[in-house]
């Protein structure tokens, strides 16, 4: 609801990259960031170029060099680069996102959002995403806003006893958990299996996998992981795998506050740390996910 209630009516020209404040527009109502939603008139119509191509990982950085030299994306002194969504798209997706808990990542949610935004039933067809009719774009919106919101949560992370977290491994776990909580707060857990089915479609899978890698990248960066050796790559791969498994686990978790999911996440991360190897967790992950995915699809009536 935050998104509509806060929609700014005063025309305001947004020039250049979207402001940071407009990036987290629809997270949850408890988010109190100042929010500006570009209204139709104020939006700059042309997508900003160069488009954000956040590299999966630039060259490993040297420990003596400040991270910001390499990762300006994360710099707090610079405005963030424009997201992959144009302002018009942002307004539309933001309005539709509110309907996801009830209607899923579907054309229905998009059309309802369009009506709320004073647009037409046909308006969402302007979204890219081919035959998913914008549904995949709505999923991307969820992934993107949730991922970029992590930066704002890193300061408030506390351990079980409420004490600040200092060690990298614990921060990784806490951030992954924050991200999983984001699914719950957005009310999309019950819709996530459908979303996974869309994401697994051959034309969307590459983007989906890339987004997952970016999430792992973000979590490791925010946790302050500064390793420069090749183990970084295996860490990222393990983290991607573990996160994806935990997310799938979450979709079937009935425990209060997703306690089981949290325990699952912790166990997996500890195991990975013990084994120290990505290879093992990746193969485990493939086994786990393949099995789980088949079950999920079967439960949806897909004949496998």
């Amino acid at each position: 609801m935050a998104c509509l209630a806060r929609a700014e009516t005063t025309p305001r020209i947004l020039i250049g990259p979207l402001r940071r404040s407009s990036r987290f527009v629809c997270l949850s109502s408890r988010e109190s960031t100042s929010i500006t939603i570009p209204t139709a008139r104020t939006i700059s119509t042309r997508p900003q170029y160069p488009r954000q191509q956040q590299p999966l990982r630039p060259l490993p950085r040297s420990p003596v060099t400040p991270a910001t030299t390499f990762r300006t994306y994360h710099s707090h002194d610079h405005p963030p680069p424009p997201g992959p969504f144009t302002p018009a798209e942002t307004a539309l997706l933001c309005a539709a996102y509110i309907h996801v808990p009830r209607h899923g990542f579907t054309a229905e949610a998009l059309a309802r959002g369009a009506r709320d935004a004073g647009l037409l039933d046909i308006s969402p067809s302007v979204l890219p995403g081919g035959e998913s009719g914008g549904a995949f774009r709505l999923i991307c919106w969820h992934l993107y806003t949730q991922r970029t919101a992590l930066g704002g949560k890193v300061g408030g992370l506390t351990g079980d006893a409420g004490s600040p977290i200092t060690n990298v491994a614990d921060k990784v776990e806490a951030l992954a958990w924050e991200r999983l909580k984001g699914n719950a707060e957005a009310g999309v857990v019950g819709r996530w299996q459908e979303a996974l089915a869309v994401m697994a479609h051959p034309s969307y899978a590459p983007t989906s996998v890339k987004e997952l890698a970016q999430l792992a990248d973000e979590i490791l960066y925010l946790a302050g992981d500064s390793s420069v050796d090749p183990s970084w790559y295996s860490k990222r791969a393990s983290l991607s795998a573990i996160y994806a498994a935990a997310e799938l686990f979450q979709t079937t978790d009935q425990s209060p506050d997703f306690r089981e999911t949290r325990a699952f996440l912790r166990r997996r991360l500890q195991e990975a740390a013990r084994m120290g190897g990505a290879v093992r967790s990746i193969s485990e992950w493939i086994g786990f996910n393949a099995g789980a995915a088949v079950n999920v699809l079967r439960s949806k009536g897909v004949r496998i």
Partner: peptide, 21 residues
């Protein structure tokens, strides 16, 4: 106004779909 790049390539760009709202 456009969304994303504003177009979608078909068959490697032999054809393309452009959309605007």
């Amino acid at each position: 106004v456009v969304a994303g790049d504003g177009w979608e390539d078909l068959t490697g760009g032999v054809a393309a779909i452009h959309k605007g709202m």
